[in-house]
Design a protein around this nucleic acid. Sequence first.
DNA 1: AAAGATCGCAACCGCCACGGA
DNA 2: TTCCGTGGCGGTTGCGATCTT
Length: 253
Amino acid sequence: MAGHLGWGVLNEEGWRKGPWTGEEDRLLIEYVRLHGEGRWNSVARLAGLKRNGKSCRLRWVNYLRPDLKRGQITPHEETIILELHARWGNRWSTIARSLPGRTDNEIKNYWRTHFKKKTKMSPETSNKSRTHHLKRQQFQEQQQQIQQQQLLQLNQLDMKKIMSLLDENYQVKLPFSPQIWPETTTLLCPNEDQHELLYTNGSVPDDHEACNDEQDSLWDGLWNLDDVHGNYGVPATCASGKATIHNLVAPFC
DNA sequence: AAAGATCGCAACCGCCACGGA
DNA sequence: TTCCGTGGCGGTTGCGATCTT
């Protein structure tokens, strides 16, 4: 960034642009501590920062706020993002309000890098991306799986009961017939990857066949979707399927 | 080992809504 | 009622890091 023309230097109005330095961060934090959030255009005058108000607000909101959560988006948060995006569309700030510690910018970036581009990808490219993504998340998922296994052990008896109910219900209610998928359906196909998403545009993705043919692994995948709050289900706009599963497991959550 | 491709994300931009003068 | 300052929002950019060939 520093090499970009005008990046990291003063612009024609005298404001600094580009990456924030540690000293600038310190000044901004001190300003907020003394004056609170707001009045961002006063920061330059009161804190001695050569940054405009917008830049200061953005830096504080997206990076310096003490209540921000660090680290990768968890599968549970991912589920929430998908569900809320299906409901609200690109209203990132609205979505962010349901994810304490996450910013609209963070959610927006996450969506764009993990989901949106998949709609345009070829299957081959998508597989590469999937591999890349999985490698990056491998460590985190290992930790989460340990936690999940502990929960699974605790609830093993109840789960077997749920599994049998779901298996019966699956045949009747889940809308896996491609004819009734709406365009741009976001469908979870958990048998291959516990939270891999497939996007369809009125057609059936190749991978989808595995969902129909391998119910056992499909349901295994659903259990892997378990999170610390004990929700099991399909975070998809495939609405009737989602409702069926959530209604079924709700009494056990 | 090196070059090119791709990804992730911090930061910027432009537009809009709102409130106060 | 109008104007202006301020803040919020969504879209976009561009660089460093990482991966692939």
